[in-house]
Design a protein around this nucleic acid. Structure first.
Length: 928
RNA sequence: GGGGAUGUGGCGAAAUUGGCAGACGCGCACGCUUCAGGGGCGUGUGAGGCAACUCAUGUGGGUUCAAGUCCCACCAUCCCCACCA
């Protein structure tokens, strides 16, 4: 057998494909556009990971298939090269990220070319290209101008090792099992810790001024649109849970202060007025007004009569307002300080509830006018709802734990419907003010109300809204989704295009008047509401201005020491030439924002970037030409990527797309505005049953395999080893089977081209050119199978169908000349999987056009079925025989045929079958 | 605690959706090939039994002429989220 030099052939076709622009659709004129997108990689580690290859190949097969079906397929590629992962990699190597990016770029593109994907190389992009991040910054400015970006001081996740802020989504909870002795004694004891998703360092909380994107404004739409897009169900569920909508009520609890404090109260209120009221007297009135009630959010307003205390989150604003009414304020303050210092690790690990009562203040239950104690406790989160809850220990496990610990009353107000035997009535003390700690339990289900005055006997679902109405509460919806924290105190990212000006602040505030009856909640929010956008830097207020669009991009300066500072500031904050600038409004000296934006902003619009790239380093988004292109190509036809991006990238991209549409900056035909109406998540590739990682030393280097077996064999093996959406175990041995298969394909085609080759002597008697109908039928069945399997991403069974057809063809070739039709069909079906070999053999057959532009074969439905079929014969449900039967025969004929079989006749004997079950073209069963 | 999966040979996995369980491939065994170390070809390969047959899709029940597939209960493993009121 002659040697097959795959690497030479791969190079040859790579050149040819590029020259003939096989994979470059005309973005402006394409008639049947098909945007086949795969998540672009970030070049962090040593070259491409097999996992990447796996994902890209799976996506590429789909693209090649669509191209052969006549679509103008656009399959772009680029690098998500900005961001912490790339920066950390550079830090590790001791290289500058800018220099390192050039090295990575070269290697990645070379590898990506090798694997044989039909990429549109002309449109490739890198997120660190100033031509690209100019538009990332432009996007930020648009978000700002439309009120979707804002600045706020918040306790944020801080990674002490990466020295930067992390979004909630980038903090992961890890369980680590405690030492073995405790495991033996107490069963498995798990300790939960919050760690940085990248370096696994424990994350702590830090209060910092940060930039946020108002993704919560889109919570409802992001949730509702999920119903209208064709995505892997598990990804939809993950997003649904992340957005986390709950419907409940906001209920106000009036406050009452102890009598002995009243005199002091008056005096201290005056003090508040003096402190707060300097700038505006209206605000002090409001501040004291906030002291009269506390608002809580609850999903169970039906349990209001069972509320026996209130709990405020440590960060709750009202607590400091109570300052002069709380008799034990020192203790409260101490508790709050401890709670704030606690990392999430400690808060979560320590499930034991803690808290302190606010003495001297009571809340009044609006339903039954009872006075309730108020606590501050860190089991209530400040960021959710109103940061305050009404505690109903009888119907909530957390409140129950707390009540037990602090000996608070537990009053049951909902019992399961006694007529429904599915529920057991829990053993709960119905004594309102006395808990029996031995037997008390909580019940979180629905049921019927008791101990609830005039609502007794009402169904709990109905009571929710009746009681809300009764106490003047408001039905509201809450989301778990938080705003997207977008600023990063690192170097390797697009500088946030914002300028802070002190002069402008002074000018604007000196002649600013608040409208008299404005909503006077928090002074700062109020100012923001009336258009005074300012921030506080080093204790002074500054006006916030976006960088004018014509001044973009704000170039990331070349900085030698790009290491994170660890003070909550970006390394850019030490670069005077960078941060010192001129105010775009007043022209005076001003200061630039020195944080960079989150990498997820870079990747939130890259699919638009591919379309907008007009030439090297130039993108056009705004002009009309681009709008034509967007209209033609968006939304993306098929998006394939990893499920690990279920709630990060995939949520942010959707958000940005919807926002751009609302801002009327992006338009494409779509009812929903969703950028990816069809998304499929590929599975995870593992090795030896374990996730691949360098620490385990089981990382597969794709280059070696491509060098050894060729890109075709490597690709095809990856697709064969398991269903694409499931992922599977990479086993080196498996690739040998594919290698054999491809060699046999080549030999079969080569033999057909070799005219001199004689037929085997023993087959002379056969009619050499007549193709048997069963073989024709096999060809058509294979076309059907492969077509349908590619459409549903069942690549493993598509490959298997090709193997079956090859086996059959080899057997046929013993006796007949296979028709040219067979070779054409076979190579076309093979082409998406093994693009090089298919192209090579195709051209050797004398074809001039690329096989990747050839028409995908179609099948004739009439040819699918053979003339006979194996009729399965059962007796009493047990298999007895298989007989060859003509297609579509009726029951009588089938019965006669079956009974002629000796094994069947023997099994039935003299008995007369009670019943005969006959399934056409399949089975006949004699029930005795 | 909540949500999502997944359990089929020695291994990766198939199974027209209720109709011959294990397709296809890996591995293994034996044989052939003037065949040298991961070469090619052929045959066999779920388990037990000489056999006809019997038993087999995590476990235990059920529905059905017929169950990997449908229903009920349980067990195991993995992933995601997690004090979200």
């Amino acid at each position: 057998m002659q040697k097959y030099n795959f690497s030479a052939i791969e190079k040859k076709w790579q050149r040819m494909w590029k020259k003939k622009k096989i994979y470059e659709p005309d973005l402006k004129k394409a008639k049947k556009p098909f945007y086949n997108l795969m998540m672009f990689p970030y070049p962090s580690a040593e070259g491409l990971h097999v996992g990447n290859m796996y994902a890209f190949t799976g996506s590429d097969i789909y693209g090649r298939f669509k191209r052969m079906q006549g679509y103008d397929v656009f399959e772009p590629i680029g690098l998500d090269g900005f961001g912490i992962h790339s920066e950390n990699y550079a830090l590790k190597l001791g290289a500058h990220p800018l220099a390192q990016s050039k090295v990575s770029e070269k290697r990645f593109y070379k590898q990506l070319e090798m694997v044989g994907n039909g990429f549109a190389w002309n449109e490739r992009l890198e997120t660190y290209d100033p031509g690209y991040y100019k538009w990332t910054q432009w996007l930020f400015v648009q978000m700002w101008k439309h009120g979707l970006a804002y600045r706020k001081k918040q306790a944020v996740n801080w990674c002490p090792s990466c020295k930067t802020v992390l979004a909630d989504e980038q903090v992961i909870t890890k369980s680590k099992i405690k030492n073995q002795s405790s495991k033996l004694q107490n069963g498995t004891r798990e300790e939960m810790i919050s760690v940085c998703e990248r370096c696994e360092t424990t994350v702590i909380k830090k209060e910092l001024e940060q930039w946020f994107f108002r993704i919560t404004k889109y919570a409802e739409r992001l949730l509702e649109n999920l119903e209208k897009i064709d995505w892997s169900e598990k990804v939809k569920i993950a997003q649904r849970n992340w957005i986390g909508r709950s419907i409940g009520a906001e209920i106000e609890f009036p406050l009452r202060y102890s009598a002995q404090n009243d005199a002091e109260l008056t005096r201290k209120n005056a003090e508040i007025n003096r402190l707060v009221g300097q700038r505006n007297s209206a605000s002090s009135q409001r501040d004291s007004a906030t002291l009269t009630s506390v608002k809580v959010f609850t999903t169970r307003p039906d349990t209001l009569f069972g509320a026996t205390y209130l709990v405020l989150a440590p960060e709750h604003a009202a607590i400091s307002n109570f300052k002069f009414q709380i008799s034990n304020y020192d203790e409260v303050e101490k508790y709050i300080a401890t709670a704030k210092k606690k990392s999430d690790e400690e808060r979560i690990e320590n499930k034991e509830k803690t808290g302190v009562e606010l003495k001297g203040v009571k809340a009044v239950n609006p339903a039954n006018k009872e006075e309730l104690p108020i606590f501050v406790a860190d089991y209530v989160l400040s960021g959710y709802g109103t940061g305050a809850i009404m505690a109903v220990p009888s119907h909530d496990s957390r409140d129950f734990d707390f009540a037990r610990k602090f000996k608070l009353p537990i009053r049951e107000v909902v019992i399961p419907d006694a007529s429904n035997s599915k529920f057991q009535i829990p053993n709960v003390q119905i004594n309102p003010n006395n808990q029996n700690s031995k037997t008390a339990e909580f019940y979180e289900g629905d049921g019927v109300l008791i101990n609830s005055g005039k609502f007794d006997g009402m169904d709990s679902e109905k009571a929710k809204w009746e009681i809300t109405k009764f106490v003047g509460g408001k039905r509201t919806t809450q989301f778990r989704l938080r705003d997207w924290l977008i600023s990063r105190q690192r170097y390797w990212g697009p500088p946030i295009p914002i300028i802070y000006c002190r002069t402008c602040w002074e000018l604007s505030i000196s002649n600013f008047q608040f409208p008299n009856n404005s909503d006077q909640s928090n002074e700062r929010e109020r100012k923001l509401e009336y258009g005074v956008h300012y921030t506080v830097l080093d204790g002074k207020e500054y006006m916030i201005h976006p960088v004018p669009e014509e001044d973009l991009p704000v170039i990331l300066p070349m900085v030698d020491d790009f290491r994170p500072q660890g003070k909550g500031e970006s390394p850019l904050a030490s670069v005077r030439e960078f941060y010192e600038t001129k105010c775009p409004v007043c022209g005076g000296a001003a200061r630039r924002e020195t944080d960079v934006s989150d990498t997820f902003l870079d990747s939130a619009w890259y699919y638009i970037g591919f379309l907008a790239k007009t030439s090297n380093f130039k993108f056009e988004i705004l002009n009309l030409k681009f709008r034509d292109i967007a209209e033609r190509w968006l939304p993306v036809s098929m998006y394939i990527g990893g499920a690990e991006h279920s709630v990060l990238h995939l949520l942010y991209v959707r958000f940005i797309a919807l926002a751009l549409r609302d801002m009327q900056l992006l338009d494409f035909p779509s009812a929903t505005g969703e950028p990816f109406p069809k998304f499929r998540a590929h599975g995870l590739l593992i090795k030896d049953g374990m996730k691949m990682s360098k620490s385990k030393g089981n990382v597969v280097n794709p280059d070696e395999y491509i060098k050894k077996f060729g890109a075709d064999a490597f690709r095809m093996y990856l697709m064969f080893l398991a269903p694409f959406e499931q992922g599977g175990d990479f086993r080196e041995q498996g690739i040998l089977g594919i290698e054999r298969f491809l060699t046999r394909v080549r030999k079969l085609v080569e033999a057909s081209l070799d005219k001199k080759k004689p037929m085997r002597p023993e087959s002379k008697s056969a009619a050499p050119h007549k193709t048997p109908d069963n073989f024709k039928s096999a060809i058509h069945r294979t076309i059907k199978k492969v077509t349908e399997d590619i459409e549903t991403l069942h690549y493993n069974t598509a490959v298997s169908a090709l193997m079956i057809l090859l086996n059959e063809a080899e057997a046929q070739a013993e006796t007949i000349h296979l028709p040219r039709y067979f070779y054409e069909v076979f190579l076309k079906l093979l082409a998406p999987f093994a693009p090089y070999l298919a192209e090579e053999l195709w051209s050797r057959m004398g074809e001039k056009r690329s096989i990747h532009r050839a028409a995908w074969p179609t099948y004739n439905p009439k040819m699918l079925v053979a003339e006979t079929f194996p009729l399965v014969v059962q007796v009493s449900g047990k298999y007895k025989a298989t007989v060859d039967a003509p297609r579509d025969i009726g029951e009588a004929e089938a019965r006669a045929l079956a009974l002629r079989n000796p094994a069947v006749a023997k099994a039935i004997g003299e008995t007369k079958p009670k019943r005969i079950i006959f399934v056409k073209n399949r089975i006949i069963n004699f029930a005795l």
